[in-house]
Simulated scan of single mutants.
Amino acid sequence: MAQPEVSLRDLRSFLAVVEEGTFTDAAIALGTTQASVSRHVGALERTLGMRLLQRGGRVVTVTTAGRRVLRHARASVEEARAVVRAAHDEGREVRVGYAWAALGAHTATVQREWARRHPGSELTFVNTTTRFAGLNEGTVDLAVVRRDPGVSQIATAALGRESRMAALPAEHELAGRRSLRMDDFADRTVALDTATGTTTTDLWHPDRAPGSWREVRGTDEWLTVIAAGRAVGLTSQATAAQYSRRGVVFRPVRDAPPVEVLLIWWREDPPSVLEELLALVREAYAG
């Protein structure tokens, strides 16, 4: 059986009467006539097959059914407003997702420069633990990743490269060194985020590979495991620049391959700010 179609106009009229207390005041708030408000509320009640408002008296009251509908009506109207805002807010806020460390030491620099060039606009970095850093969920316009998604619908562009750092428990025997080599991970337990992290098992020669792997999800769990002395880690320098955790020290790994930083977006729907943002971030990495 098909569900009845509910009109946003009818919901707005219903909410206005509830909030204002009378049909007359609701009409004033909506900039329309009392007859129009009454018609839309009546239409909503007929669609739902129940009385939502109790007429009579100086102030209209909400029925039991009306109270059940009220919360959902408010959510629906607010969602419709959000759709309109999203359509008109392009350029006012640019949302960039990231799974681990945004742009590392360059994050604040890029945000400040964007604000200088675009007064009234905001460049917002949004943390997520998903593979596409919020792009697939529709919560961001673009995303910074350090692993090519390998999906044809998603376009990628290189932003720059970052060296790799070891993350060690502060009391670890290697923490006193100024730098490490990949061989220093041999026979140790390495914390590994297989979904979004930059470390993969094929970085090591089989003869010098870590002894075991401890799977984690996201930066916070990764840092917690290392601080507790349960594992060591290998990450990009951006993680070391953007995060500090008591009990964790970072050391450069001299012979580790660099990490390529990528910007991703939907190929068929590139944001209007794409080229300018690309140039700005590449400038920061080059500098």
Rank of each mutant, 00 (worst) to 15 (best):
232 V>E: 04
84 V>F: 12
215 E>W: 06
200 T>Y: 11
237 Q>A: 15
145 V>C: 03
197 G>A: 02
13 S>R: 08
38 S>N: 11
148 D>C: 03
87 A>M: 07
210 P>K: 01
179 S>T: 10
238 A>R: 03
3 Q>N: 14
25 D>Y: 11
58 R>C: 06
192 L>Y: 06
45 E>K: 12
127 N>H: 12
222 W>C: 02
54 Q>V: 08
242 Q>M: 05
228 A>C: 04
48 L>A: 00
141 D>E: 07
285 Y>L: 06
110 V>L: 04
210 P>D: 00
114 W>S: 12
47 T>I: 03
226 I>N: 00
65 A>P: 08
171 E>T: 15
71 R>C: 03
259 V>R: 00
150 G>N: 04
270 P>V: 03
25 D>N: 15
205 H>W: 00
174 L>A: 14
201 T>P: 05
75 A>K: 06
159 L>H: 10
273 V>G: 03
175 A>C: 14
83 V>C: 12
44 L>E: 01
44 L>H: 00
263 L>A: 11
58 R>N: 13
87 A>S: 11
191 A>H: 10
46 R>A: 00
283 E>N: 05
194 T>L: 09
243 Y>D: 03
195 A>N: 06
64 T>V: 13
118 H>F: 05
108 A>F: 10
98 Y>G: 01
116 R>T: 10
244 S>V: 12
146 R>N: 05
246 R>N: 08
114 W>L: 10
143 A>F: 07
31 G>R: 12
12 R>L: 06
107 T>N: 01
208 R>W: 03
71 R>A: 15
253 V>S: 09
153 Q>V: 04
254 R>D: 01
151 V>W: 09
197 G>D: 03
167 A>L: 15
71 R>K: 13
263 L>M: 14
89 D>N: 15
216 V>L: 08
9 R>A: 08
240 A>V: 13
228 A>Y: 03
68 R>F: 15
190 V>I: 10
